[in-house]
Design a protein around this nucleic acid. Sequence first.
DNA 1: TTCCTTGCAAATCGTTTGCATAATG
DNA 2: CATTATGCAAACGATTTGCAAGGAA
Lengths: 128, 128
Amino acid sequence: MALKYSRQRQVISDFLMTRKDHPTAEVVYKNVRQEYPNISLGTVYRNLTLLADMGEIQRLRLGDGIDHFDADTSAHYHFVCSECGAVTDLKMPCMEGILETARKDFDGEIQGHVTYFYGICGKCTKCK
Amino acid sequence: MALKYSRQRQVISDFLMTRKDHPTAEVVYKNVRQEYPNISLGTVYRNLTLLADMGEIQRLRLGDGIDHFDADTSAHYHFVCSECGAVTDLKMPCMEGILETARKDFDGEIQGHVTYFYGICGKCTKCK
DNA sequence: TTCCTTGCAAATCGTTTGCATAATG
DNA sequence: CATTATGCAAACGATTTGCAAGGAA
């Protein structure tokens, strides 16, 4: 399955690079559509999955049941606002040693961990 | 909305107490059905949601897109096997201070965090 | 020409909901 | 009797998939 170039994939990838708000497939679709009106939702999903599998982007599952995508593939943590659903990056360092701790007393191979934080974002806090 | 007793809710709750493998709604349904053949999937979902909202059980979102339920409501971490999907409890202590760390440099209110580990469980490691 | 990609629509999957009926307090 | 809960089936929202047509190597 050698990969072939596709304008659609390029546009999707480019769009994601410009955003740091971790958009959903639907949001990617709506935006890419402005510049590429014929693109279909299926194509967006297919390419997001493809890019994620290749490790070019990150798929985030943050508890709201909707997948979010992030062009920043470095290890970092996220915050999800329970009020507005906004997803933002946290500046905190990746927790080293957490895997070692988890491996203690565990039968099997622990490869990684997923962590995200939730609460009320700055914007929503002020609007109350 | 005063709660009224229901045999179905009781059976669902009882069943969950006997399991430590964090079953999905579907699994709860299939099992409860043996003892209560007329129960409907909708009722299972409604009651699981109800019990979770009351804090009697925990709803777990572990990245596989399917909700898992846990009768153990104490704070503890989980491991998900990428091979067979099994969910098990980890013995590691809850990470204190992680919220403090996350709050540094953050504009907004961080209320909690979700963490789970993934990899290959002991059973799957041996079967290769 | 090969075979990867697309657009479109239908299908899937987990979950929720409307409604008439049954059970609880 | 007033309400909450149920079974059933239809509705939902996010995502996937089959297929014939289009585009890249």
